[in-house]
Design a protein around this nucleic acid. Structure first.
Lengths: 211, 211
DNA sequence: TTTGTATTCGAACGAACGTTCGAACGAAAG
DNA sequence: CTTTCGTTCGAACGTTCGTTCGAATACAAA
């Protein structure tokens, strides 16, 4: 019985030589994500990343080959992590609306815990080139496809949905991902609270229920 | 009777010396918006803007003082234009739901006609500093406030809304502004079509109406 | 034509960028 | 001790950046 196929991280280069290597790699990626989330990819510099990570400039290059690869690693690890956890969660739930709740909560939990990484994934989506771009794009497409499947299944048994499922899914991602533009204004809210509001708004709309 | 106060463009420097000046300024701003939308502010260079505008590098500086001011002018003119037109449209409509439709349609028409500018406003929102930042922020806040007022008024006479109006407004902007991430996929859609879908989804939700 | 002003541009400046490289460090193995 | 190898870093490289400046051009007024 083959387990559900998950992504294989191409960033595992030769091998995890030491245990400390992975820990430090994460430390460096987190520093890179903080800088890039704050300044954007183009205005980020390796010197700022080095300062943020408490390392020397040249020391960074032991963990990635170029600035673009740093961006790639941040984005890849983030999507990979979200997808893995989403698959775990969805295994245990079959009801479509509960599955959508799992997806939204999973997304928001990642958001609140690692906002820098999500911001880098969202705002520098088109910056990567060639193979780097294709690899991240593949993960993004998988994520979108899974969510689209859930949205489609919600209206299967009833009359057709009010809005095309494909567009509705994109609008749902709009609601979810735009949060990083204003989240500091409601800091303290939990993923469950925000998730409930988004789910209610998405499924039933803003207007009060008619009697 | 004073007319409704509109924004006064601080970019009108000494005066519009010639009529050709304004036309060329717009030409330069459009070129800057194209480059910045394509590459992001940080990776944009004055040399790329010059090439896009068919001018020399140093010739650009006759129309703005610095790269940051170019970004400011693009953002300021865009918000100013959206706000002006929105105020015009809202003057003739009183029904809350029709007012919301005007807001959504106005936003989408700007989006489809000048996607580069909107993208620059959205993705490089936090790049400006000091006075530049405050001036654009003031316009953005006014835009948000107007929309929030409409959203609040929609449920005034009925039972309370399902979702806090403030959050609902932010989610609405999320749906509207996220479009630039995927719009090429549905190129050809009109502002009315997209607006109808967003309005329906926002007001009544994705689920079919219960009987 | 002559004068004055608005506009354009080639060339160049210093600063900051991403990246490289060889030496030095630390700890575990022989 | 010596050797080995993963890791770190200071110094420097060539390039490209934003910006400046003085000269050249276009064009309207006198």
């Amino acid at each position: 019985m083959a387990p559900i196929q998950t992504t294989v991280d191409p960033a595992v280069r030769v091998a995890n030589r030491t245990e400390g290597y992975d820990r430090k790699l994460e430390h460096v990626l987190a520093a890179g994500a903080r800088v890039m989330a704050r300044e954007g990819y183009g205005l980020s510099t390796m010197r700022k990343v080095a300062r943020e990570a408490d390392m020397s400039l040249s020391g960074l290059y032991h963990y990635f080959a170029s600035k673009e690869e740093l961006l790639f690693l941040v984005q890849y690890h983030t999507f990979d992590s979200i997808l893995r956890r989403l698959n775990d969660r969805l295994e245990q739930v079959t009801d479509p609306r509960e599955r959508l709740r799992e997806m939204v909560t999973n997304h928001l939990e990642h958001f609140l815990a690692r906002m820098d990484e999500l911001k880098v994934c969202a705002s520098d989506m088109e910056t990567l080139t060639c193979d780097y771009y294709e690899q991240v794009r593949a993960l993004r497409q998988r994520y979108l496809r899974i969510t689209l499947g859930i949205v489609e299944s919600i209206c299967e048994r009833a009359t057709g949905p009010r809005v095309d499922p494909w567009l509705a899914t994109l609008y749902l991602f709009g609601m979810l991902n735009w949060i990083y533009m204003w989240y500091p204004a409601v800091e303290g809210a939990t993923a469950e609270e925000l998730g409930d509001q988004i789910l209610t708004l998405f499924l039933e709309g803003y207007l009060p229920r008619k009697e």
